[in-house]
Amino acid sequence: MASKIWRNYQLYLFLLPTLIYFFIFSYIPMYGVTIAFKEFKPHLGILGSPWVGFEHFERFFRSDQFWSLIQNTLGLSIYQLAAGFPLPIILAILLNYAKFHRLKKTVQTMTYVPHFISTVVLVGMMSVLLSPQLGIVNVIIKSLGSDPVLFMADEDWFRSVYVWSGVWQNAGWGTIIYLAALAGIDPGLHEAAIVDGASKLRRIWHVDLPGIAPTIMILLILNMGSIMAVGFEKTFLMQNALNLATSEVISTYVYKVGLLSSQYSFAATVGLFNSVINFMLLIIVNRTAKAFGQNSLW
């Protein structure tokens, strides 16, 4: 082993900066997780703060907000996964079969561009478009004889607005991976299918989907592993007192109790709980995929 490393030491030297980066900025800070088991006091530091064991975990599990936070986080994540995961696959297949090159490039550009819009700008656009007075959506609704809808202030509409705006922003960008996977499929398989008289739908079902199935499975596992990690920025920007019943998720709750209320240990406890659940889901989904003979991360 040592001789192989020495023979290829140049490759390991190229890898070394990346390893150092992750060690310094990802692994060393993990020591800060210990404040979840302490009553952290800034003037005492992490080492000097007293241990309290699982006291903060018990407090979180017994709190009135525990189940609502879990329900809101899981509900938003599952909705986002169900709506957003299949669309890049469908879009990639449609673009792959597009006959007109110029049309294909135009659609690709139009669907990729929203990905580069910042979250702050996106939420601002939604506030304007969905405004109950001048928003184009409510203008159309009122022209049809209905009352305007308070999309940004209605707790029942929060999830749909959050999810479908995210689908619009990221679906085109997600197709890049699937288009690359489709490009790697042997053209001879399509030629053989055409000779056998297979229609486009049959070619998609029997050639394209099996060809990109490993990519789909890997991305599904990664998505399932972060199902409890609802993005903080967009959720917080869309959140207000009227939709708080469905918009309060774990990430926004950690911000409020940790930074606004200065309950550092309790916030670290909630964040650690969230990370542990994500890690367990990643392990379970990966093992399940492996047990069924599908591609897995390891």
Results as ranks from 00 to 15, higher is better:
Phe66Cys: 02
Phe66Gln: 02
Trp67Thr: 01
Trp67Lys: 05
Leu69Asn: 09
Leu69Tyr: 01
Ile70Ser: 10
Ile70Thr: 07
Ile70Arg: 06
Gln71Ala: 09
Asn72Lys: 13
Asn72Cys: 14
Leu76Phe: 06
Ile78Asn: 02
Tyr79Thr: 04
Tyr79Gly: 05
Ala82Leu: 15
Ala83Gly: 04
Ala83Phe: 08
Pro86Leu: 02
Leu87Trp: 03
Pro88Phe: 02
Ile89Lys: 00
Ile90Leu: 14
Ile93Asp: 09
Leu94Ile: 14
Leu95Cys: 14
Tyr97Lys: 11
Ala98His: 10
His101Gln: 12
Arg102His: 07
Arg102Cys: 01
Lys104Pro: 08
Lys105Leu: 15
Lys105Pro: 12
Lys105His: 14
Thr106Met: 09
Thr106Ile: 14
Gln108His: 00
Met110Gln: 10
Met110Thr: 13
Val113Lys: 07
Phe116His: 03
Phe116Met: 05
Phe116Ser: 03
Ser118Ala: 00
Val121His: 03
Val121Tyr: 03
Leu122Ala: 08
Met125His: 10
Met125Asp: 07
Met125Ile: 06
Met126Trp: 04
Leu129Met: 13
Ser131Asn: 15
Ser131Asp: 14
Pro132His: 11
Leu134Gly: 09
Gly135Ile: 00
Gly135Val: 08
Val137Phe: 15
Val139Phe: 08
Ile140Ala: 14
Ile141Glu: 14
Ser146Ile: 11
Asp154His: 03
Asp156Thr: 15
Trp157Asp: 04
Trp157Ala: 11
Arg159Ile: 04
Tyr162Arg: 05
Trp164Pro: 07
Gly166Met: 02
Gly166Leu: 10
Gln169Ser: 09
Asn170Arg: 12
Gly172Ala: 11
Gly172Pro: 01
Gly172Glu: 09
Trp173Thr: 04
Trp173Val: 04
Gly174Cys: 00
Gly174His: 07
Tyr178Glu: 00
Tyr178Gln: 03
Ala180Trp: 06
Ala181Gly: 09
Leu182Ser: 01
Ala183Arg: 02
Ile185Asn: 04
Asp186Ala: 07
His190Glu: 11
His190Arg: 13
